[in-house]
Simulated assay, not measured.
Amino acid sequence: MFDRPRTSSQPVPRRARVHAVRALTGTMVRTTLRDADGADPAAPSSLAALRAPGPEDHVKVFLPDPATGALHAPTLAPDGGLQRATGGVSVSREMTVRATRTVDGAAEVDVDWVRHDGGGPASAWAARAAVGDEIVLAGPASSLGVPTGIGRLTLVVDETGLPAAARWVDAVGADVPVTAIVEIGDDVDESFVEAELGRADVEILYRTDGPGQMVESVRSLGALDDDEYVVALGEAGELAAVRRCLRQDLGLGRDRATVAGYWRRGTVNLDPDAPLDPADPD
């Protein structure tokens, strides 16, 4: 049985500005963030105080009002939760922390975005993000570490799960074999995916080839090793079938897999706590 250590903390809001923007591949963009001008780098609200040790750790990103450009920052409520600002539009999304580091004494945080044609305000913001733009990061409120005792890691992701998958590869021991099944759009470069996942053995699936490829690739793995752990992250509808396959066909218990929907076709701002399949919420 695998046990993932969990730590919790207050989701402190941190005002940040875009320090750099890098087009990664196709519709993917990386924003590098630093503290907003005038911030105290020693304060709990600085990016230097942000801790994201778990490979899937995410922050709630608050974006400017699409109509006015005003940024309505949340505050920390007395109960330790987040209180949204009143009197203005507050757009937020859950985003994976791709990397944190310190450069020339300044704390930096990387966040990778997937832009969608005809997407919502987050996709639109990422498409036009420029140096100097300001946003707010809140969290992470909790962190799940890597289970001890993993002998093999299997990743099943799409572009939205790629940042967390890359962190998983870095987080497990160098002696742990990693297999990655990655579904991408035609505008995503295979070489970028392979570079992000480093030493992993990568299988690329193209979304344009039709639905159901993820679950078929998982099924083709056959029996899994007793010390194998599976992480599946991406579109909720696809992953509902993957979870059923892991549980019913491959006999994997809940303690040996993490499956999370990061988005759902036809849904804007999917609740990360929503069940993958409302008809089968477990």
Rank of each mutant, 00 (worst) to 15 (best):
V111E: 01
A73G: 05
E134M: 04
A279Q: 13
A99D: 14
I181D: 00
L24M: 15
R30C: 13
A236H: 06
Q83G: 10
V178A: 04
G210P: 12
L144K: 07
A165Y: 01
T154R: 14
P13E: 00
P78T: 01
T179N: 08
T86P: 01
A223E: 15
A129H: 05
P44A: 14
G266I: 03
G151T: 00
G118H: 09
A49W: 05
V176C: 07
E108K: 01
G198R: 11
G105I: 10
T75E: 14
I204P: 04
A122M: 07
D110F: 07
M95H: 13
P53T: 08
A274K: 02
A52R: 10
F2L: 07
T86I: 03
A126L: 07
A166P: 02
D3S: 14
L162T: 05
S220D: 15
A171L: 06
P147A: 07
R17P: 02
P53F: 05
L246N: 00
V89R: 14
R199E: 11
T154V: 15
S123D: 07
D225E: 15
A122Y: 01
V103Q: 11
G38W: 11
D40C: 07
A85C: 09
S143R: 02
G151P: 09
T102V: 15
Y229N: 00
A141E: 10
E108I: 00
E190G: 09
D209L: 13
V188A: 04
M28P: 01
D227H: 06
F62Y: 15
R247V: 14
V178P: 01
V202C: 10
E56H: 02
V61I: 12
P11D: 09
R128L: 12
G261Q: 11
G261F: 09
M214Y: 03
L155V: 13
D79L: 03
W113M: 07
V182H: 06
P11Q: 13
Q83K: 13
R98P: 00
D209V: 09
T7K: 08
S143Q: 01
V188H: 08
C245M: 11
D277A: 08
D249I: 08
D186A: 15
V215K: 01
R256M: 08
R199C: 10
A107L: 05
A200W: 06
R14Q: 03
E196Q: 14
P275H: 04
S45V: 06
G81L: 01
R264E: 10
P281E: 10
D255W: 09
T258V: 12
A232F: 11
S92Y: 10
L246P: 05
M95W: 08
E94F: 10
A240D: 01
R244S: 13
A49F: 07
T102K: 03
D65R: 03
D65F: 05
E108L: 13
A126Y: 08
V91L: 11
V146N: 01
E183S: 06
V61A: 12
V259W: 02
A126P: 08
R98Y: 02
G54D: 04
P55D: 12
M1F: 09
D133Q: 09
V157N: 02
S45N: 15
R254G: 11
A279E: 15
N269D: 15
E216A: 14
D271I: 04
Q10A: 14
D3P: 00
D158W: 10
A106L: 13
A42V: 10
